[in-house]
Each structure stands twice: as C-alpha cells, then as structure tokens.
C-alpha cells in the first residue's frame, strides 16, 4: 500500500481519501512526486476520463519524477511543471474559469494538496468537487510564525527557517488558509540550545 498513512490524528489537520473517478464535464488533475502513481491508477481505471483530463504534474522534492509515465497516459492536456510556484498561475486560471461539472483531483504531498485546496476554495469551487489522496513524502510546508516566511519540504524537526534563520520546531497546528504547519522558535528562552534535528517527516 503506497498511500500515505496518517501517523496521528490532529484536530486541525485535514484527512485525505483516495482518487476515484467522478462524473464530470472535465477533470482537472494536479499531482506531485509519488502522487503520479495515483493519477495513473485513476485514469487507467476510468479511461473515459482521458479525453476530458487536464494534468499538471510536478516532480517530487525527494527526486521522484514520474513525468514520462503521466505523459504517456493520453490525457487531453499534460503540463509538466518544475514547482508549484511555476504552475500556480495556470492552476488558478483553470480553477477560476471552471464551469459546473469540473472535477478536481489532487494527489501527492500534503503541501501540494493544501495549496491546491486553498486555491480551489478561493476560486469558489464547491467542497464536493475536490478529491484528494496523500502519497509519497510526508515533508511539510511550514510557516515561521515570527517572520511569516514559508519553508517548503521540511523533513527535519527542528529546522532552520529558510527566510529569517531562526531555529524552529514544527507545531502540530495546521492552517488550511496558508496550507502550512506552524513553526515556532525552539531556543527562544535559551538562545543557541537547539536539540539535534530528527527526520520526522520522511
């Protein structure tokens, strides 16, 4: 089973499902890293979707790149993108242009799912038009509560904020609006006393 298992139930953290085909006039599919396997499974189970499918695929920060697999699925539109930031204008445009009947599927890391969810809510997409599946790395998107900068693909705890350089621990507190966990200075009371980092989010 390659679907990512939730390691804990945290009250502010969303839970994810499995990509399953839904009735729709068009299918917009966004995936990163190992999420590509979930997309392949989806379209192979429901080949009728392919002429109505628009796929955006971003290789994983951990090196997983299924671009060739997804390109070969035969979707009407396949768009490979190097990062979410590079694809976000396209994603927001497609979501903003969406007609009734558009179905949205997101598979991959929590950081990707959260960002697409955030953009879909902002575009006014109904909740039930969105299906998610968490796959691959459990790396987290973390917002530094001090400088507000977001560090992508955090696997270590504590870690150094990529913006302001403070030593942060990852609090189990998740904002859907920011699509990010909260990072809080770990050595505020004893500057310099930072416990060794552990790989918590592999």
């Amino acid at each position: 089973m390659s679907q990512t298992q939730a390691d804990e139930v945290m009250k502010s953290r969303p839970l994810y499902g499995t990509l399953t085909p839904k009735q729709g006039s068009s299918h917009f599919i966004v995936a990163d890293g190992e999420g590509g396997d979930a997309v392949a499974a989806l379209l192979n189970a429901a080949p009728d979707m392919k002429p109505l499918a628009h796929i955006v695929y971003i290789p994983g920060a951990n090196g997983t790149d299924l671009t060739a697999l997804l390109e070969g699925l035969g979707a009407r539109v396949f768009h490979p993108a190097p990062s979410y930031a590079s694809a976000s204008q396209r994603i927001r445009k497609v979501l903003g242009d969406a007609h009734m009947g558009l179905q949205l599927y997101v598979a991959g890391t929590e950081g990707l799912i959260g960002q697409v969810q955030r953009d879909a809510i902002a575009a006014g997409l109904p909740h039930d038009a969105l299906t998610t599946e968490q796959r691959g790395s459990k790396a987290r998107r973390v917002q530094c509560v001090h400088c507000k900068g977001i560090t992508e693909n955090v696997t270590l705890d504590p870690f150094v904020c990529s913006h302001c350089g403070l030593n942060l621990f990852v609090r189990d507190h998740y904002s859907r609006r920011l699509a990010a966990f909260q990072g809080v200075c770990i050595d505020a009371e004893d500057p310099g006393e930072v416990p060794p980092s552990e790989e918590r989010f592999k």
């Binding site: 509560v145 609090r171 189990d172 859907r176």
Partner: peptide
C-alpha cells in the same frame, strides 16, 4: 496564539494545540 495563523479556522482547528482538553 497567532491570529494571522488561526484566522479562517473552525472551532476544533484553532483549539488543536491545547493539550488534554480534546
């Protein structure tokens, strides 16, 4: 607690960090 982080959350979400009470 941070308004900027919590704004937009529902009741259980913004109380998530509180220990024991859940």
């Amino acid at each position: 607690w941070s308004l900027d982080f919590d704004i937009g959350m529902n009741f259980h979400e913004w109380h998530a960090p509180v220990p024991l009470a859940h």
